[in-house]
Amino acid sequence: MSQRTQTPSTSASATPVVQGRGLTRDYTRGSSGFFSSSQAPTVRALDSVSMAIERGEVVGIAGPSGSGKSTLLHLLAGLDVPTAGTLELDGTDIEPLSGRQRARLRLETVGIVFQRFHLLDALSARANVALPLVERGVGKRTRRERAESLLEAVGLEERVTHKPGQLSGGEQQRVAIARALVTDPSLVVADEPTGELDSESGERVLDLLVDVADEQGVVLASHDQQALDVCDRVISLRDGQVARRQ
């Protein structure tokens, strides 16, 4: 497995690819009754967390289950909006954006790698990788070329036309990484990317993510110490708050 030797971009003009200040997220548990005047109880999943990630940086998020890792990841990926605090994705404050505008911002600036890959079963590896480009209105030939070059970059040039069901878990995760990179995003968000893989496949996936970070910022949530070891720094959460920064 490659070790991180590269330092994040330190140019004065560099804007963090994602910057959160005082990020707080409350969830309502159930709903208040129709005839009841009492407020539904709320749960604070994340409490005043601040962090920034720059290009070329791999940041790990650690913590036990229920510590707020997923909530923070959702906010950083622009999938959710904070109850309090501000979040800027590539310099854009997401709070005033509509759902449609946030989807557009995600499409252009964020690549997401899921623990369970979440590839579309009916589509080939190439079509899965090219999917975000469909939304961007890119022509078929360009989509195919871009998808094939990324599949080649992740070592799957022989598996271009294979369906997800014909690929191993490690191969599927590499396809997912290629899909995350196809729009050339500023930030790659990976949620337990090695959680479903054996150690050898996991190592290869981590190598790919580290390589990606030459151009993009990478944020990686994991329980796996092997995954956290490749990160430039690790933020540990406990009960929705930052417990430790390494």
Binding site: G99, R100, A103, I112, H118, L131, V134
Partner: peptide, 16 residues
Amino acid sequence: RRQLGTLAAIGVSSRS
């Protein structure tokens, strides 16, 4: 739902 959620997460708009 999971695949549709995936599409939403990777930025495919509600209209698409």
